[in-house]
Design a binder for these strands. Sequence first.
DNA 1: ACAAGGACCCTAGTATACAAGAATATGTAA
DNA 2: TTACATATTCTTGTATACTAGGGTCCTTGT
Lengths: 246, 246
Amino acid sequence: MTAATATPTAKAETDPLGFDFVLDRRHPVADQIYDSLKAAIVQVKLLPRTSISESRMCRHFGVSRTPVRAAILRLSEEGLIDVYPQQGSYVAPIRLADIHDGHFIRKSLELSILTEAAARWTPEMSRQARDIVARGEAAIQAGDVEAFHVADEDFHHAFTGFADRPGVWPAILQAKTRLSRFIRLISHIISNAERLPVVIDEHLAVLDALDRGDAEEARARLDYHLDKIFKLFDQVPDPYRPYLTD
Amino acid sequence: MTAATATPTAKAETDPLGFDFVLDRRHPVADQIYDSLKAAIVQVKLLPRTSISESRMCRHFGVSRTPVRAAILRLSEEGLIDVYPQQGSYVAPIRLADIHDGHFIRKSLELSILTEAAARWTPEMSRQARDIVARGEAAIQAGDVEAFHVADEDFHHAFTGFADRPGVWPAILQAKTRLSRFIRLISHIISNAERLPVVIDEHLAVLDALDRGDAEEARARLDYHLDKIFKLFDQVPDPYRPYLTD
DNA sequence: ACAAGGACCCTAGTATACAAGAATATGTAA
DNA sequence: TTACATATTCTTGTATACTAGGGTCCTTGT
């Protein structure tokens, strides 16, 4: 995300916000702060309703308010931060309506993409997709949850390439981001050991159907896979309900 | 868009940019500039590849660079403005890839919405939709192209309400914005007298199918209606080609 | 004439200072 | 103790100054 390989000119002080960062003044600072904040929010390292004071962020990152404001502005448009003028900015609560809408959008787009991908499916595509699934399995074995999420995203991303619609991915990603925080929150709470391998199986089921040339079955499998998110609702313990809202 | 009814505290000087504005200092200036610029770009009053110098915009709007930058930042994320650091910012060209992607996204989402709306279709919905179509017809009679576009957008907007998915509309709108500039450019060139009434007929065809309870026919009608944009490609005269790109 | 170098002006990115509204704390009077 | 008025201190919004890089054009040297 941030340019970890570059020479850092500023380093985190003690970290009261729960996420670290490395600034590289050779690249636009606003972008790096945006990436850093977004990652922290999506991974629920910054909890919903957490105050995001511009001045505190300045001290935290060691920069002026200008790039911090630019980052917050971008995040507020994505619905990840709520800005109340003259009052404060806060990490947006995880809205159930957002989850429903994001799910609807994602499902509609991914199913459309899948249909086009199925129409031009090749063994090479199958090989690439299975490689990605294998990476996800390896991540589970290694206990690297973050790597698993990356592989999961890559899997869904790959189909936009297969369908020759790369420009559609950003729209899917935007919808998915709304769901991601909820999934990450669950991951913080519930054992991944039982949930993650199921994801792998469902991914493989889609690929198997595609390899058999059964597009309709593939659609049904993906539909089932995506709908599973709603089963997670029941698993949110009461202490975490305050992070959610209608 | 801007608060036209409020007491203006700043007014346009001579207008070299081709669009006017009224600033109301009681509301956030950045938002007003964003609205003003976006409207000018979408309506192709600001032509693609037009230079958007921050300092010129400052003088134009009579404000400092800060709110202008905020507006440009937002527009750059929507793909309406391209920012080249240390070089300049320009109204983005109308990219063919954007049109294809925007069309794909819009079609997928609107068809999904239509399916859900059809499942809960009521005479009241039909009445509301036909009222909107009537507004579009009246706009054509009055020669008010802008009012027609508003009614057209309202028509498509209404279905997200019928499907009880209001949160999906912003996503559709975002995809539609990419197409809008192309359609507006066409509107500047080609006679609307023959094209606009066809739109009305196609809208009514969708409603007729829904009233008959034929959801599949309604989907086919909407699909046909949305695909029509590609027929406009052939109608772009050569002198306007420079505004388009791959 | 032509090429290399430099001064200058343009651009966007960043830092800092100021303004205005909202919440809270505090002090005072009943 | 309670109610109200006020002052302080937060917050974000805006204005201005400064930095650094890119482009142009003019000058200068060959």
